[in-house]
Design a protein around this nucleic acid. Structure first.
Length: 420
RNA sequence: GGAGAGGUGGGUGAGUGGCUCAAACCAACGGUUUGCUAAACCGUCAUAGGGGGUUAACCUCUAUCGAGGGUUCGAAUCCCUCCCUCUCCGCCA
């Protein structure tokens, strides 16, 4: 969430940033108005509470001395009633502010290109070359079927469409990718963690996923637990409600989880095979750092994610995501896209975001410096999601006969060099 | 799932209605003393929000003892609901 004080003191800045995100600016006026009310109520109610505290002391003293305090008690009864009424009004104003605040995204950094849709994203880097064999590239669904390593029909039978099923060497390849990525990131200084895949509502709120995106989440009914849409949620919550040691930054974690997304409202769009799924595997990178370091850390994280693709020799590009296409909590976002020779297009495989203090303010993750408490900056990046990476990998490394050559670095993880 | 115990500041831990709007100790930080180390002594020791201020230091008020309600002039303390942790039993990978 944004800083209420920042909105109060710079409403024009916020309006301008909201416009850049194609959002209406009326919310700013509402917040400012409710904030004025809120502070009025606070002033009034605290004056009354102060009075009550001091008079209660007097009553205690009078009772001890044996004198009659009935009159003061009657007065204070009235004061207490007033306090209760004012507290209710205050809570109402605070709730109104919170409801609006939960709907306002992070402010875009000035280095973010302005634009409305993904078409306005700006290519930032491109690496490698398109697979250019002199034959027709089979797509991953055809390949998977031919080699008997992927069976989307079985996944659909077990769970529904969008739940991939891997088999034999296909399953081993998936496991190899995950292990390779984790080992590489450990080498980059990340602490490996393994964590719950179901989290409580408080954790989802701290990561700013709920209530805004509740429709996109799988939720268990009697326990109100959410299937995580990304490992970002449990990892960010490691330090929730904590004042972190200022000397410890950057604090870096990597971890594998399955990720679950309902993808409500996106039916019929890029639904083939792995292109859009409800469950996928991802190795996530999270970085807690000092505010002044977050944009530098972001470039470092981007390079860590790209390093995986380069080791696997996968053709990719990085785009600087525009204001209109950026994630809710991000102030800046790079998407990494991998090339699919069969689809003849780029597929998003990773997203590296600087969430600045947007999550840490909600999650109360802070550190101390010069006697002051400041909010930590939090970055997240996929390093990477396997599903679309898998598509690019098996498609790009296929032979004219429809076999798949395993990249050198993966061979010690798979235990084989070729599928087919 | 059943039975019991318990949740107090960074940690230990006192506190069953009002000089406790949280004692004491430990840790941490600053200082004094000191050949060095250690010890001793003194001081600081929360978070959030409001108001004031030469808008920095600082002053002041309010809230916070797992969470939320309730009783009361007044709640860490009494009542209700929920959450979590620990121990034992049952079930189970």
């Amino acid at each position: 969430m944004l800083d209420l004080k920042l909105i109060r003191e710079n409403p024009d800045l916020i309006r301008q940033k909201l416009k850049a995100r194609n959002m209406s600016t009326g919310t700013v006026d509402s917040i400012v108005q409710f904030d004025v009310k809120r502070r009025e109520f606070i002033g009034e109610v605290e004056k009354l509470k102060s009075l009550r505290n001091s008079v209660s002391q007097e009553i205690a003293k009078m009772k001890k001395e044996g004198s009659n305090a009935d009159e003061k008690i009657a007065d204070m009864k009235k004061v207490s009633d007033d306090i209760k009424a004012l507290d209710d009004k205050l809570a109402e104003a605070e709730n109104e502010i919170d409801v609006i605040l939960r709907d306002i995204p992070n402010l875009a950094d000035d280095s973010v290109p302005s634009g409305k849709t993904s078409d306005d994203n700006v290519q930032f880097r491109i690496w490698g070359e398109k697979a250019s064999g002199d034959f027709k590239y089979l797509d991953h669904v055809e390949l998977g079927k031919k080699l008997d390593i992927l069976d989307f029909g079985v996944g659909a039978k077990i769970s529904g469409s969008g739940f991939p099923f891997y088999k034999g060497k296909g399953a081993m390849l998936e496991r190899a990718l995950i292990n390779f990525m984790l080992d590489t990131h450990k080498g980059n200084g990340y602490t490996e963690v393994f964590m719950p895949f179901l989290v409580n509502r408080a954790s989802m709120e701290a990561a700013e996923k709920v209530p805004k995106f509740e429709e996109d989440m799988y939720r268990t009914d009697p326990d109100d637990l959410f299937a995580i849409p990304t490992a970002e949620v449990p990892i960010v919550n490691i330090h929730r409600d904590e004042i972190m040691d200022a000397g410890s930054f950057p604090v870096k974690y990597c971890g594998y989880t399955a990720c679950f997304r309902r993808e409500a409202g996106s039916y019929g769009k890029d639904t083939k095979g792995f292109l859009r799924v409800h469950q996928f595997n991802k190795v996530e990178l999270i970085n807690f750092c000092l505010p002044e370091e977050s944009y530098v850390q972001m470039e470092v994280m981007l390079n860590h994610a790209c390093g995986i693709l380069e080791a696997l020799n996968i053709h990719y590009r990085v785009v600087n995501v525009c204001t209109g296409d950026m994630g809710f909590a991000a102030s800046k976002q790079y998407d990494i896209e991998v090339w699919s020779p069969a689809e003849n297009k780029w597929l998003e495989a990773s997203s590296v975001s600087n969430c600045t203090d947007f999550q840490s303010r909600r999650a109360m993750i802070r550190f101390k410096r010069d006697k002051k408490t400041e909010y930590v900056h939090i970055l997240n990046g996929s390093g990477l999601a396997t599903s679309r990476l898998y598509v690019s990998l098996i498609e790009s490394n296929q032979t004219p006969e429809g076999k798949i050559i395993i990249p050198k670095v993966l061979q010690k993880y798979t235990g084989f060099e070729i599928i087919g």
